[in-house]
Amino acid sequence: SLNIVTVTLNMERHHFLGISIVGQSNDRGDGGIYIGSIMKGGAVAADGRIEPGDMLLQVNDVNFENMSNDDAVRVLREIVSQTGPISLTVAKC
């Protein structure tokens, strides 16, 4: 069973999320979106629970499971540009 973790980040303390995301597209185009790298000083690094290779399932109320990489990057950028905490739900691989 997948270990699902939801992390809520206070964006007032850390001014950027600090992750890159990578799409693992397979033949069907539904390989999922994964955490690529984590930048020091960002909210994700400070929290420490999300790691490279984790699968990104949801951000706030947006489901990322069947999203293309381009869409995921765009949607994540829109969410980060808003104010307030950000909740990331990942599956630990």
Rank of each mutant, 00 (worst) to 15 (best):
I38F: 02
N63K: 06
L88Y: 02
V5D: 08
E12C: 08
S81G: 15
L76D: 01
M55R: 05
A72P: 05
L56G: 02
D61L: 03
R74W: 03
I50V: 06
I79E: 01
E65A: 08
E65N: 11
T6V: 10
M67K: 11
S81L: 10
L56F: 02
C93G: 15
N3C: 02
G31P: 15
S1Q: 05
I21F: 10
K92S: 03
T6M: 12
G36C: 06
V59Q: 00
G84W: 03
E12D: 08
L2Q: 12
D71S: 06
L2I: 12
V80A: 14
E65W: 01
C93K: 15
D30Q: 11
F64V: 05
V7R: 06
Q82M: 13
K92F: 00
V5R: 06
I4F: 10
S1V: 06
V62R: 07
V59R: 00
T8V: 07
L56P: 01
G18Q: 02
L57H: 06
V7T: 10
Q58D: 11
G31A: 08
R13W: 04
V5K: 13
D70M: 03
S87R: 12
G31F: 14
V62M: 12
G23A: 06
S87C: 10
E78R: 09
D54Y: 00
K92L: 02
N63D: 10
G23L: 01
G31D: 15
S81H: 14
T83K: 12
S68V: 13
V5I: 14
T6H: 09
F64E: 01
D30A: 13
N63I: 10
G32Q: 12
V90Y: 01
L88D: 08
T8M: 10
D71A: 07
D71E: 13
G48V: 15
G23S: 13
R77D: 15
S1F: 07
T6C: 09
Y34H: 03
G23M: 03
V7W: 01
S87M: 11
F64P: 02
L57N: 01
T6K: 08
T89I: 09
T8F: 06
T89V: 10
N69C: 07
R77Q: 12
G29L: 13
T83F: 04
R13L: 12
D61I: 00
T89Q: 14
H14R: 02
D54L: 01
I86N: 07
L17F: 02
I86K: 11
D71Q: 09
I35M: 15
L88E: 15
M11Y: 10
V75P: 02
G23Y: 07
V59N: 02
E78F: 10
I79L: 12
E12Q: 05
D54M: 09
I79Y: 05
A72M: 02
S68D: 14
V22P: 07
M55A: 12
R77E: 08
Y34N: 15
G32Y: 04
V59G: 03
T83Y: 05
R77F: 03
N66G: 08
I79A: 05
L9N: 00
N69Y: 13
T8A: 07
V5H: 03
I79S: 10
S68H: 11
G23I: 02
L9E: 01
V22L: 08
F64H: 01
R13D: 14
A91F: 05
Q82E: 14
S87W: 03
G32P: 07
G29M: 13
I86P: 00
E12H: 05
N66H: 13
D30S: 07
G31V: 07
D70I: 03
M55D: 02
M67V: 08
D61C: 06
F64T: 12
L56W: 00
G23K: 10
G48C: 04
G18T: 01
R13F: 11
N63R: 11
R74Q: 14
G18F: 00
I4H: 03
D71P: 03
D70Q: 06
I86R: 03
L9P: 08
D61V: 02
V44L: 04
G53V: 04
M39I: 13
Q82W: 03
L76M: 07
V73Q: 15
G32L: 08
Q82C: 15
G32R: 09
N63Y: 11
M55I: 12
P85G: 10
G18D: 02
D30P: 08
L57T: 09
D71I: 09
V90F: 03
G23D: 14
N60W: 00
M11I: 10
S68N: 13
S81Y: 10
D47N: 15
L76P: 02
V75L: 10
D70V: 05
G84E: 15
T89S: 12
G23R: 11
I35T: 13
R77A: 08
A72Y: 01
V59C: 09
R77K: 05
G18P: 01
I86D: 01
F64C: 12
Q82Y: 14
T89H: 12
A91M: 03
G84P: 08
Q82R: 11
P85H: 13
Q82F: 05
S1P: 03
N69A: 12
D70H: 08
L76G: 07
E78T: 11
V59H: 00
L76V: 06
N63Q: 14
L9A: 03
A91D: 02
S1W: 02
G84L: 08
K92R: 04
N3W: 02
G84V: 03
I79G: 14
G18K: 01
N66W: 03
V5A: 09
D54Q: 02
V22D: 15
M55F: 10
G31T: 09
A72T: 02
V22I: 13
M39R: 15
M11L: 09
L88W: 01
G29S: 14
S1C: 07
V5F: 13
V62Y: 09
M55H: 12
V5G: 02
A91C: 06
S87G: 06
V90K: 02
M67D: 01
D54N: 06
G31C: 04
E78N: 05
K92Q: 07
R74Y: 07
L56I: 04
V5L: 05
V22Y: 08
S20F: 01
T83V: 10
A72E: 01
R77L: 02
I4K: 13
I4A: 03
Q58H: 13
S68G: 08
S1E: 05
L9T: 03
D30E: 14
N69L: 06
L2K: 13
E65L: 02
P85T: 14
Q82P: 10
E65Q: 05
G18V: 00
R77S: 11
S1D: 11
P85N: 15
F64S: 00
L88N: 03
T8L: 10
I86Y: 05
L17R: 01
I38V: 15
E12W: 04
S68K: 06
Q82S: 09
I86F: 03
T89Y: 03
P85K: 15
L9S: 01
